[in-house]
Simulated scan of single mutants.
Amino acid sequence: MALQQIVEQTVTGLGYDLVEIERTAGGLLRITIDLPWQAPEEGAPELPDQYVTVQDCEKVTRQLQFALEVDGADYARLEVSSPGIDRLLRHEQDFIRFEGSEVDLTLKAPIGAAGGEKINANRKKFRGTLERSEEGGWQLVWTDEPPPKPGVRVSKKREPAPMNVMGFTLDELRDVRLAPIVSFKGRAAKSE
Rank of each mutant, 00 (worst) to 15 (best):
D74P: 00
G112K: 12
T61A: 08
K125G: 04
E58F: 06
H91Q: 14
P45Q: 07
C57Q: 00
T106W: 12
L89N: 08
D49F: 12
Y51A: 12
I119T: 11
R87C: 15
T106C: 06
I85P: 10
D86W: 01
T106L: 15
A121W: 04
E79A: 10
Y51Q: 10
G128D: 03
R97Q: 08
S82V: 10
A109M: 12
F95Y: 11
Q55H: 09
S101L: 00
P110W: 07
T129E: 12
T53K: 02
L68D: 03
P110A: 08
R123P: 00
P110I: 09
I85D: 01
E92S: 10
V60C: 05
V70Q: 14
V52G: 04
F95G: 05
N120M: 02
S101E: 14
P48I: 11
D49S: 10
L47G: 07
V70K: 12
L107I: 02
N120F: 05
E102M: 09
F66N: 13
S101C: 07
R62A: 08
V70P: 01
G84L: 13
V103E: 04
E102C: 02
D104M: 09
A44W: 10
K124R: 15
G112A: 07
R97G: 02
V52W: 00
Q55R: 10
R123E: 08
P48W: 12
I111T: 04
I96A: 12
D56N: 11
Q55Y: 04
A67M: 09
I85C: 14
E69N: 13
A114D: 10
G84M: 15
E92A: 13
T53E: 03
G84D: 12
L88P: 03
I111C: 02
E117P: 15
T106I: 14
G72Y: 05
E99L: 04
E58L: 08
V103Q: 03
V54D: 03
D86G: 15
F95S: 05
D49T: 10
G115R: 14
D94H: 10
T106M: 12
R97F: 07
K59W: 00
I119C: 06
Q65H: 12
G115L: 15
V52T: 06
V80A: 09
K125I: 07
S101D: 07
A113R: 02
I96L: 14
T61M: 06
R77L: 02
F98H: 13
S101A: 11
K59M: 06
S81R: 14
G72T: 06
P83M: 12
S81V: 09
L78Y: 03
I96C: 05
R62N: 12
A73R: 04
A44G: 01
A109Y: 14
R62M: 09
N120T: 07
S101I: 00
T61G: 06
L64F: 08
V52S: 07
